[in-house]
Design a protein around this nucleic acid. Sequence first.
DNA 1: ATTGTGAAGGTTTTT
DNA 2: CCTTCACAAT
Length: 715
Amino acid sequence: MEPEDILGQLNEPQREAVTSGANPVMVLAGAGSGKTRVLVHRIAWLIGVDNISPFNVFAVTFTNKAANEMRERISEMLGLETRGMWVGTFHGLAHKFLRLHCKEAGLEQGFQVLDSGDQHRQIKKIIKERRLDESYYPPKEVQWFINSQKDLGLRAKQVKEDAGKKQHIQLYRDYEKRCARSGLVDFGELLLCCYETLSKNNDLLAHYQQRFKNILVDEFQDTNEIQYQMIKLLSGEDGAAFVVGDDDQSIYRWRGANSANMSRFQKEFVDTRVIKMEQNYRSTKTILAAANAVIANNDERLEKTLWTSAEEGPQIKLVANHDEYGEAHNIIDTIQAKSKSIGLNNMAVLYRSNAQSRVIEEALLRQAIPYRVYGGFRFFDRAEVKDALAYLRLAVNQNDDLAFERASSMPPKGLGAKTLSDIQSFAQTEGVSLFVGASQLLEHSLISGRAKNAVRDFVAQLQKIKNETENKSLKEQFETAIHLSGLINFLQQKKSEQSATKIDNVMELINAAHGYRPLLDEDEITPLESFLSHAALESGDNQASEWQDSVQLMTMHSAKGLEFPLVFIAGMEDGLFPHQRSQIEVGGLEEERRLCYVAITRSMRELYISYANQRLIHGLTNYSRPSRFLYEIPEELIDEVSNQGVLSGSTKKNHKRSSKNKSSSLLGQRIHHHVFGEGVVIAIEGDGDNTRAQINFETEGTKWLVLSYTKLNLM
DNA sequence: ATTGTGAAGGTTTTT
DNA sequence: CCTTCACAAT
């Protein structure tokens, strides 16, 4: 490949980044400045011009969608020259590593990846076993605790003992033990275990440091502690990593992401070359001006000014609606009006939370407009799909306790809660898995009567599934296991409408298996193992029509890295966006503002923003004001129209605009405060009956208690 | 042992 | 609003 083929369409800073030598490089790149492009072109440069083997390239990013796109674009440029290259998400690559080195990592061959639902169930059970009160130790909170410790790279024994944390740490310890015994690995564990294995094993580390001389990281602002450490470890002494990021687009703080990693990189990697890419090639002047104005309200940003030479473009349309149905109709009307000229594929509807998609989907369905939802309800999270997968997981690894438990009760086979708990306590005292425990119980005739028959049949059934799925194609394995599980028979007998859908879903699973192709260089593990891991790591695209012209629906989070000529941002209301919860988290509002920045900058040309005066949330009517972020957009960029809704007034000259609306101001909500001794209490009026929250913190001798209370309901 | 009922509780974003 | 859970009835 000729240098000009690669550099042809690039601007100066982009070229500089693509061709830079082996020094550590940090590209500070604004939205739409060609971040991913630079990354892909750099890989092409390394391989095509510098003659580096794909074998030496390690390219990592954050979400599956971004990773897929990167992979696609690389092979578009390089064709088949990508063999041996590691491209994927942090979790995906860590998983790959652990499959290759499960022995060194102390994991069993057929270890399974735990998704967050599984993890939640597991933790819940452990809390029960400890006889702790779930209302005092909510599983969600414990789960959050464990995950954030893992994100920080801390094992239970490494967590600093803190008076309030004792029980949590104990639960973490229990959970670790349980996962180890059952061969289960959660998301955080993938990273942590990978990191530990590398740092404990010098030969292995040396090998990979030698191999991955070229490490590239996209969306670097979203790395968390353990990910940062992993990059640092892998890049070794010379630390020649190439990272790309934009601190203004850091939106995963709640998951441990720390955008300070960007400034940290400059310090800790010797002689880091910083390249700024500030020209935006994506959006019109209007869009960019709006985005810049919003993000300007955040403090502590890295120095960077985004500009464009593009045309002014149309104003941003702001639509006031009465309720969410009106909003959906309005969006669909616009979609229909524009579908001919723009094309459905080029339009995206973005929203803050997945639940918002329902109303919009219904409206699209009614008008028979094809659409595609990303994320949200996960195919692999459905109960019947998990049931079916449990049998396949057991075919791979009979010690998978979670799967054992699931399979034992579905379909019902006379093995109920009582018998299961007998097996569990036996297995626990013996320190073995449920499957082994059940087999031993049988062997030593420790159970009798009906239970004995049920357990014997079940163990035999699992053995049979294991035997009969050996050496078969993936599709046959699925057919066999599902057939032998008796799930379909059971569902057929029920003959309800729901069970018909469930059967469809299970059948769809077989189709998915049939169409499944493991990634090129994944031949080190069996296709079945690969499929099962992907089921946990990816949301599962159940919507077949990937190439059909269709409107794209997704959360603002999933939209990061994508661009569309026409973008709708729906549900622009205080409480929804910025989300209520963000208002009581320190720094929460700033993160929401970055998310808003991300959302606006997805648009290349046309942007429709809408809000509703009222909206049904969890069955209750919620009244809300237009999002405060709207008032941060210069009014001349906005054209506000009403669709039977009350206008925000953000374009009216006389309206008092809160343009200096900083994160501390809570629009219209009553705030009370009281100072006493060394403390301050601040009470904020909530606007729903479930707004109850409080935070404590200390600043230089002053204790703060901020709490929200419920407005009296006089209706 | 399984199934059905009603009450209670939890609601952001993703790997 | 939807899911999960506890308990009663089969």
